[in-house]
Design a protein around this nucleic acid. Structure first.
Length: 373
RNA sequence: GCUGGGGUAGUGAAGCGGUCAAACACUGCAGACUGUAAAUCUGCCGGCUUCGGCCUUCGUAGGUUCGAAUCCUACCCCCAGCA
């Protein structure tokens, strides 16, 4: 970390702030939401459509891209931006979340995590160092530390301390490897592919706070991560089975302790009400599968953070748009709820694309309400 | 017209004397989804229900039997082959 890559433009009384995160692919207004493009694409959408939604940054996944098609292939083909056609900033997740989501098929050791490749049956070891290498090869603009994520369902809260401590040890290893990988990345050098712009060629590195639902652990973890050479602070290990109240309590608790000079990223959260709550407690960045997955499954948000299931029979004759107050491409074009329902019923993937477009716009607009203009 | 095969819930399709309101699949209806093993998964899907059951169904009409979607008879349709 040379100097701060985050500029706070305005801080409001109730805790939220707006700012600019400077990435090597350009500045990004905060708060912002990143859709998941785990395997390189936001399912069903082209980059132009993603841009239209007001989306600034995508999230891709080191684990999934490592398995298929492999970071070496992507690197050879010019990096993930060239490969996928998305020229904006990309944040890559480290594979840490898969320690949780693929818990049935993995073994955690101090060295790293052994994952069973559920497609091929083989075993893959991801270490903190390898995660850094994968993300670096992909051409990530914001690299996430490799962490140990545990669930917080009522019966699965026993590993928080161990996971936090390992996450800290791994963070130190991540930083060492990150420095090694980026020692030839220069400030002020023009990045290939971004014409006419002079940007730093070095990606950012974010550390991740763990600690489960234990406030002492969380505070310790936050202090540890903030003591390290990281460009941003991520809150990990929330929205993984705990109650909404428990998550809110933690966000409230942590709010006073953040370093104002660094961006704060609440990982995995994307329910509008949760985002508002978090933004008002100082969070700048979000990602979540909800707008994309729910969109494919027929659920969309409408004004008031309410959900609507477009598969429902009651929309069969509804000639109105998803949300008459919405300025997304789907609503503005005039696609009716009836037509969208029909597309879901006949299994046309256009339904998912149109709904995803709407949902992404909904979250982007939510963030824009808080951004300094 | 003859010979053979067949008609089962919205569709396809099991069942071939009792444990059948009837497997399974699809469709239909509803729900879930928070750093994507997810265009996936779960529930319901004859009618009524105080959720314990009750009632009406397996082409139609009769019959055999304690008991039939399952056996017999007649009839009505469909399909294949022969005329």
């Amino acid at each position: 970390m040379s100097k701060s890559h985050f500029k706070e433009l305005k801080r409001y009384k109730n805790g939220n702030r707006s700012g600019i995160l400077k990435t090597r692919r350009g500045p990004v207004k905060t708060p912002f939401f990143m859709p998941c493009a785990s395997r390189g694409s936001v399912k069903g959408l082209q980059p132009s459509q993603i841009i239209d939604s007001g989306t600034q940054v995508l999230l891709a996944n080191a684990y999934h891209l490592h398995l298929q098609p492999g970071e070496k292939v992507i690197k050879k083909l010019g990096g993930l931006h060239t490969f996928s056609g998305w020229q904006g900033p990309i944040l890559t997740d480290s594979g840490g979340f898969q320690v949780f989501s693929l818990a049935k098929a993995r073994k955690v050791t101090e060295e790293g995590v052994y994952f069973k490749n559920l497609a091929s049956g083989g075993e893959v070891l991801i270490t903190p160092e390898e995660s850094m290498q994968i993300q670096f090869d992909l051409g990530s603009d914001i690299i996430m530390a490799f962490d140990d994520v545990t669930g917080l369902s009522p019966t699965g809260r026993t590993r928080s301390k161990e996971a936090m401590e390992r996450t800290h040890r791994w963070l130190v290893r991540c930083i060492t490897e990150f420095k090694k990988l980026t020692k030839n990345s220069f400030k002020g050098r023009t990045l290939k592919g971004v014409k006419g712009t002079t940007l730093r060629n070095k990606p950012l590195l974010f550390g991740i706070v763990q600690g489960g639902l234990d406030k002492n652990l969380r505070k310790k973890s936050l202090e540890f991560v903030q003591s390290q050479e990281v460009d941003g602070i991520a809150i990990g290990g929330l929205a993984v089975g705990e109650t909404r109240k428990e998550m809110y309590d933690m966000l409230n608790f942590l709010a006073p302790f953040y370093d104002p000079a660094r961006a704060r990223y609440l990982m995995g959260v994307g329910e509008p009400a949760d985002m508002r709550y978090a933004i008002e407690r100082g969070i700048d960045i979000f990602d979540c599968v909800l707008p994309t997955r729910n969109g494919r499954h027929g659920q969309v948000w409408i004004t008031g953070d309410k959900r609507l299931n477009l598969n429902n029979l009651k929309y069969a004759n509804d000639r109105g748009p998803i949300d008459s107050k919405c300025d997304c491409h789907t609503c503005k074009t005039g696609y009716s709820r009836a037509f969208l329902r029909h597309l879901y019923k006949v299994g046309d993937p256009l339904a998912g694309s149109l709904a995803t477009t709407h949902n992404l716009r909904y979250l982007a607009r939510l963030c824009e309400e808080y951004q300094q203009t």
